[in-house]
Simulated assay, not measured.
Amino acid sequence: MNKDQFRGKVDQLKGQIKEAAGKLFGNQRLENAGKAQHAAGDIQEKVGDVKEDLKKGP
């Protein structure tokens, strides 16, 4: 696991927590911020996956 994969997982988790807190408290802004952070974490994890695949080579 490289740093991009790790940071992506962390951002996904933070986003899920924010999203759940936003739903719990009825705060749409917090919920949307959580969704955005979760999506950004997913993208960062995918970047890390590509880097790992490139390291392994054909």
Score class of each variant (00 low, 15 high):
29 R>V: 09
41 G>T: 03
45 E>H: 15
58 P>H: 04
53 D>Y: 05
37 Q>M: 11
35 K>C: 01
35 K>E: 06
39 A>R: 15
26 G>V: 09
53 D>T: 15
46 K>Q: 10
32 N>T: 11
32 N>K: 15
20 A>L: 07
17 I>L: 11
40 A>N: 14
24 L>C: 05
42 D>G: 12
3 K>M: 10
20 A>W: 06
22 G>H: 03
42 D>L: 10
25 F>K: 09
7 R>T: 08
38 H>Q: 14
32 N>H: 12
11 D>P: 00
34 G>C: 09
58 P>N: 09
50 V>G: 02
33 A>P: 02
51 K>R: 13
33 A>Y: 08
8 G>L: 03
11 D>Q: 14
40 A>R: 07
31 E>G: 02
42 D>H: 12
33 A>Q: 14
24 L>Y: 10
53 D>S: 15
24 L>P: 00
34 G>Y: 01
22 G>W: 04
55 K>Q: 08
9 K>E: 03
36 A>R: 12
42 D>E: 13
33 A>K: 13
14 K>R: 09
48 G>R: 08
51 K>C: 01
32 N>S: 14
8 G>F: 04
57 G>T: 10
48 G>N: 07
58 P>V: 12
56 K>Q: 13
12 Q>W: 07
58 P>S: 12
14 K>T: 03
11 D>N: 12
11 D>I: 00
3 K>Q: 13
15 G>C: 07
24 L>S: 05
28 Q>P: 01
47 V>D: 06
1 M>A: 10
1 M>W: 03
36 A>W: 06
6 F>S: 12
27 N>S: 00
29 R>C: 02
37 Q>S: 09
47 V>G: 11
40 A>M: 10
14 K>W: 00
42 D>Y: 10
26 G>M: 02
57 G>D: 02
54 L>W: 06
48 G>E: 00
27 N>R: 02
52 E>Q: 13
44 Q>I: 13
19 E>V: 01
31 E>F: 00
22 G>I: 01
20 A>M: 05
16 Q>Y: 05
